[in-house]
Every structure is written in structure tokens, then in C-alpha cells.
Amino acid sequence: MFYLIALGFYPVMLALVIPIGLLLTGIVEKRQEVDKEVGVALAPLAGLAVVIAGISVLLHLGAPARALVPILTFLNILAVFYLLFGFRRRFHWPELKILLILAGLGLVAYAVLISPLLAGGQPGVLGYGVNNDPVFHAIIPEYIDANGYDFPASPNGGFAEAAVDKLVTQGYPDGWHQILLLAMRVFGLRAFFLFNFAEAFFAALLVPVAYIWLRKIGVSKLWAGGGGLVTGIGYTQLTYAFQGFAPQVAVTPFLYAGMFLFFEVIEERRRGLYVLLTALIIQAGLAIYSFTILLWIGIFLLCLVAYKT
């Protein structure tokens, strides 16, 4: 069962976000004439950004965590239906082939990232003896799953104190924890056992992001795919040395995707829905790691201004 969940985590979570992402990027492509290759490559991140925003809204409105999977499944069914009929002339085999290849490369990167767990034959958090931060990050979705966002004014130990300390006192963003909560509901396991799988899932999403950046500068599809794979597995050492960097790892694909889209907005003078897509991707980064993502995009903006002048 462990190996089944370990290897199934990436494709299952990807399947929960790709239809929504394809629908969103397809609408942007139709209105803005955006390169279809970029649209299908960014579909997983676009869908994940929508899911993060949607989970946050639902939970803050008081929806129980058990409702997340049925609601998300229903939305994906609607998205697939519309893609099959409303976009039957928009998505063709060449674009979908790119999506499947990038998803396959992402799965390879994911397998490399979780290989230490596979070798050990059991789930759990590696490296938490070095850094106890994962304990807090695993506790938060457990608390939200049981209590929602109803925080006691004066928590006295246990999960409540850890959750209040992170989310209320420190004002820590909760996008990472919401995806971990969704995974808990999908696979029926505690957050501790899914922690590494979720972290590797986000790291593997660097594959399509690196791919579109490399394609942007003229690299062939073959070498861009290889570069994306190398980028995706590049976090392996960091991931297992310091587990507390899970939100930092999770924000990375959104950071570089946001930079790419922002560059397109400036360089290609994109407007309208393309700007909204850019904002959605950046918003997901903010939900995972707060304003820090804006600092990096600001540095990128300065470099872009220097490049343009």
C-alpha cells in the first residue's frame, strides 16, 4: 500500500488540477492568442493556483474539510466536459502530447525526489531530527481538518497551540498546508506520512516551468525537456537535508512561472486575461510563502528594466 500511494501521489494530485488548469489557460489562449505550448505547460500550476484559492475560500467560509474532494471532483468533471465540447477545436494532439511528456518527466523527477523513502520502504518525514519545522507544518493541516479556522483565544498545548502560533501569531501563509490537507483527504493518511510526497510533488512542477523558460530562449524541445528534468530533481539534496524548507520548495515553481508570465506581460505587451493569469500564479505564491515572492520578482523586474534599457 505504501508504494502504491508513494508512486500514485504525483499523478493523482496532478489529475485533480490539470483539467481546471487546461480550461483556464485555454480561455486565455483563445482570447489572447498565447502560445499553446506555454498554455499546456502551465496548466498544472494554473489549476493548482485555482485550487489553493478555492480551498482557502471554502475553509474560511466554514466548509468542512471532508467537502473538499467531492467539490474538486465535481469541478474537474465540469472542466473535462467543457474541454471536450467547448474546446474540441482548441486542444490537439501535438499540444496534449507536450503535456503528457512534461507530466511524464515530472513523474520521473518525483520518483527521484522520493527515492530515499522508497528505499526505506516506509513513509514519514526525513530529516526532522535536524529541523523540527516539519512537525509544525504537519500539525497545522491536522488541526484545520478537525476544527477548520476556529482558533482558541488561549490555546493550551497540543495541535491548537502549534496552529495558533504559526497561522495567527506569526501570520504564516497557509497555502502549503491546504494542499497537504487536500492530500490527507484524498489518500486517507495523516499529514506526517504525506509530507515528503507533497514536497516532492511541488518540486517536480519545476519541470514544465523550466521547459517554457528554455523554449523561450530558443532551446529545442528535446533539450528543454531534459533541462526541465534536471531542474526538477535539483532540489533532492536540499529537500532531504532540511525538511523545514517545504513551503520554500513549494513556492519555487510559482515564483519562476510568475516571472515568466510577468516577462511576457512586459515584453509582449500582454493584457486582459493574461495579466489575470499572471496575478493568479503570483497569488498562489503569496498564499504559500507570503510577500517574499514579491521581493524576488522585484529583483527580476529590476533586471528586466536594465535589460530593456
Rank of each mutant, 00 (worst) to 15 (best):
A162K: 12
L4I: 08
G188M: 07
H137F: 08
W213D: 10
G226D: 02
L84Q: 12
T231C: 05
N131Q: 07
H137G: 08
I282A: 03
F291Q: 05
V219P: 07
A163C: 10
R89V: 07
F85R: 15
L255H: 00
Y128I: 15
L61A: 14
F201Q: 08
P19T: 06
F151G: 00
T236F: 14
L84F: 15
P11R: 06
F192Q: 11
G26W: 10
V209Q: 05
F159P: 14
V38F: 07
I293Q: 00
H60N: 09
P208A: 04
V265L: 02
F202M: 12
L167T: 11
L273D: 08
V12N: 14
G218T: 05
T292E: 11
V249I: 13
D150H: 09
V249C: 02
P19V: 06
W213N: 07
G158D: 10
P123M: 03
F87V: 06
A111P: 05
A53P: 03
G298C: 01
I98Q: 09
A146R: 14
L222H: 02
F245S: 14
A279W: 13
I297R: 00
A191C: 00
V40Q: 00
L222F: 05
L59K: 13
P141N: 05
N196E: 13
I144H: 03
M13K: 00
K221C: 12
Q32S: 08
T73G: 14
V135A: 08
L61K: 13
G232R: 08
L301A: 11
L42D: 07
N147D: 09
V186D: 00
G227E: 01
A119H: 11
V135C: 06
I114K: 03
T278P: 02
P94L: 01
D174Q: 13
I266K: 11
M259I: 12
L24Q: 06
I5R: 15
R88Q: 15
G47D: 09
V112I: 04
G175A: 02
I20S: 09
V164L: 02
F197A: 06
L294R: 12
A250D: 03
A41Y: 04
R271I: 10
A204P: 05
P11Q: 02
L118N: 02
A250F: 03
Q32L: 06
L45Y: 03
C303W: 10
F91R: 05
L96R: 02
S154V: 11
G228E: 01
V12D: 10
G188K: 10
